[in-house]
Design a protein around this nucleic acid. Structure first.
Lengths: 310, 310
DNA sequence: CTGTTGTGATAGCCATGAGTTATGGATGTC
DNA sequence: GACATCCATAACTCATGGCTATCACAACAG
C-alpha cells in the first residue's frame, strides 16, 4: 500500500550502480540488508525490478517504469523537508503579540522599532484576543507576548513590564445624571461613591480577578456591585453604555475607543489607577520574547515613572 | 531522513479530520497507534504538526507547510503504482521472439497472425541474437520464444515445433574450382566428400553441437575439419567466403542472405537436411508462449510434412 | 586446472517499530 | 455529579530491518 522512502532510495541507488555491493556501500548498509530490502520492495510491487543474471544486474521493464517515479518522490520529500525547515525558521522569527484592545499610546511602533533593531529577522504579528481571556492569548499559547491589564490571574505563571499607569475613567451615557454632576465639578470628575449603586458592565466571568478590578471591588467595602451586563469588546461596551444598560470603568488611554456619539467618559476620584503591562509566560525564554519584554521595560523607563504594580 | 508513506497518509488523515479518534477509525488502526505515529513523525520532522489544545486539534504552521507536500507525495505514489501496473500488463502481453537470422519463408507474418487472432492484446517483439547463442536468447531469458536450428544444445531444457526442413547448401566464392564442377554437374550440386579438405567457416565454440552440425561432423567419419575462420553473422559469412577464407554450409532458406556479389551457393549431396524450429523453455507455460508454439505447430503441419528432428 | 576474487543470496540472530488492549486524566454535557 | 468524548500513556506482541557469517557461482589469474 505505502512505500517507505528508504526503499525508494535503496532502489534508486541500485538502479544507478547496477551493483548491489557498491550500492550498499554508498548507502552505508550491508549488502544482504540491501538485497533483502529490494526483494521486499519487489514483493510489494508484485514484480521484479532487477534482472540478476549471473554476470550483471539490469533494470526490468517494471523497474524502468518505477525509477522516474521513485526519483520524483525522493525529490518531493526533499522539497517537503525544505518547506518544513523554512516554516520552522519563519516561526522562530515570528512574535505573536496578543492584545485585548489596541494598546495605543504609541507603544506598538516604539516596541517594534526596538525589537527589530536587535533582531532584524523578527516579524512581529499583532493578534486581537477576546476580553474573556485576560492573558490575551498567553495562557493557551496563541500569543507569545501580550498587552495585559494588571492584576493578571495566575500571575505567577507570567512575568511582565508595566508600560503605562493611568487614572481610570467612567463611561456614561450623555444624558446620565452623573454627567451633569461631573460637568459641574471643579475637576470635571465624579466620586466613586456616587457610582456604587449604578449598574456596571462587567467582563466575562472567566476574566476572574480582572473582572473584579474593573468593577473596582476593592473600593466597595464588600458591597456587591450591580451588574448591568457582560461585555467582550470596546464596541459592545459603547453600545451597552449608550443604551443605558450600565456604566463602565476604563483606562484613560482607552477612552477614545468607547467615547463617541452618546457616550462620554469622566475621571473618577477614589479608585486606583490602571496598569498596562507587556507580559510573557514566565518559562518562555525565547530570544524574541526576552527582547520584547526588555524593550517594554526600556520604553516604560523612558516615558513614565515605573511604579510597582498594585 | 526518509518518510514512510504510511506516516504521510496518517498525517493527511488527521489533518483532514482534525480528530485523532475519527482519523484512526478511517485508517483502520487504533487511536493510540495513530497518536504514536504522529508523534514519531513530529519527532522526525523536528516540530509539532498539530496543536492539541484540550478542546481541539489544529494544524501548526509547520503542519500547514507540510500538508500539501504530503498530499503530493501520496498522489505521486499512486501514480507510481499505476505506472508499475501498466508496465506489468504490457510485459504480460509482450512476446520476445529471438532469432539468429531472419527466419524468412513467410513464417513471421503467419505466426503473428495466428498469435494475435487468439490473443488480441499480444505484442510480438522481434529480437536479433548473436550466433554464439544457439538458443537465440532462450537460455538467458532475453527471448520468450525463438527460431532455432536443431540440434539445440541442452535440448531437454526446451520444447519446440519444427517449422522447416530443407537441404543444406554450400557457399563458395564464385571462382572456386568446385563452383565449376557444380556447374558441370547434372543436378548443379557437389558431393560432400569433395568438401572434406576445404577450410570451413565455423560458428563460435559456445554454439557447441550446433557448430558441429554446420561443420557436418557426422558426415566426416571422425576426420577433423579444417577451420578457416569463425563467423557470427550472415554479413561476416559473406565476407569470409568472398575473401576465400573458407566455405560454409547454410540452409536453403538462408541462401539469399549470403549469396551475392562474388558468392554462390550450390546443393550438397551426402549430408542431412537442416531443421528450423520454434522453441521455448520447457517450463514456460505462459499463455502467449504456448500460443506461439501451437501456432508454429499448425503452420508446420500446413506447409511441410512434419518429420522427426535428427 | 586450481586458487582467488567479485557478486548476490541465504541463514540465524537481535534491536526496534508499529500495532494491539487497557487505562488515565481533562473537558464538556445532561 | 454521572457520563461521554478525546488524546496520552503503559505494557505487551509480533513483524521488520539491520547485522555477521557463509554459501554458490562465475570470472579470472597463475
Amino acid at each position: 500500500m505505502d512505500v517507505h522512502g528508504r526503499d525508494l532510495r535503496y532502489f534508486a541507488a541500485v538502479a544507478e550502480e547496477l551493483n548491489f555491493t557498491r550500492a550498499a556501500e554508498r548507502l552505508f548498509v550491508s549488502q544482504p540488508a540491501l538485497s533483502k530490502q529490494i526483494r521486499m520492495l519487489e514483493k510489494q510491487v508484485g514484480a521484479d525490478l532487477f534482472h540478476r543474471d549471473r554476470r550483471a544486474v539490469r533494470l526490468t521493464v517494471v523497474g524502468k517504469a518505477l525509477l522516474p517515479h521513485a526519483r520524483g518522490m525522493l525529490a518531493a520529500w526533499e522539497a517537503a523537508e525544505a518547506a518544513v525547515e523554512e516554516a520552522k525558521a519563519a516561526e522562530l522569527h515570528t512574535l505573536v503579540i496578543g492584545m485585548s484592545t489596541s494598546p495605543g499610546r504609541g507603544l506598538l511602533p516604539a516596541l517594534r522599532t526596538r525589537l527589530v533593531s536587535r533582531h532584524p529577522h523578527a516579524r512581529p504579528v499583532l493578534r486581537q484576543v477576546n476580553w474573556a481571556d485576560p492573558s490575551a492569548g498567553l495562557a493557551d499559547g496563541s500569543s507569545d507576548v501580550a498587552f495585559v491589564w494588571l492584576p493578571l490571574p495566575d500571575g505567577d505563571r507570567y512575568r511582565y513590564a508595566v508600560v503605562a499607569q493611568e487614572p481610570r475613567l467612567v463611561a456614561l451615557p450623555q444624558g446620565h445624571p452623573l454627567a451633569a454632576r461631573a460637568a459641574a465639578d471643579s475637576e470635571g470628575a465624579v466620586d466613586f461613591t456616587d457610582l456604587l449603586d449604578e449598574p456596571f458592565l462587567a467582563l466575562p466571568s472567566e476574566a476572574g480577578p480582572l473582572r473584579d478590578y474593573w468593577l473596582a471591588l476593592d473600593a466597595r467595602d464588600d458591597r456587591a456591585p450591580r451588574i448591568g451586563g457582560v461585555v467582550g469588546s470596546a464596541e459592545e461596551t459603547h453600545e451597552a453604555v449608550a443604551n443605558g444598560q450600565g456604566v463602565a470603568l476604563l483606562a484613560t488611554g482607552n477612552a477614545s475607543l468607547v467615547v463617541r456619539d452618546e457616550v462620554i467618559a469622566v475621571p473618577v476620584r477614589g479608585i486606583s489607577p490602571s496598569h498596562l503591562a507587556v507580559a510573557a509566560r514566565r518559562d518562555d525564554e525565547r530570544p524574541l520574547v526576552v527582547a520584547y519584554l526588555a524593550a517594554a521595560a526600556m520604553v516604560a523607563a523612558g516615558t513614565a515613572r515605573t511604579e510597582p504594580p498594585p
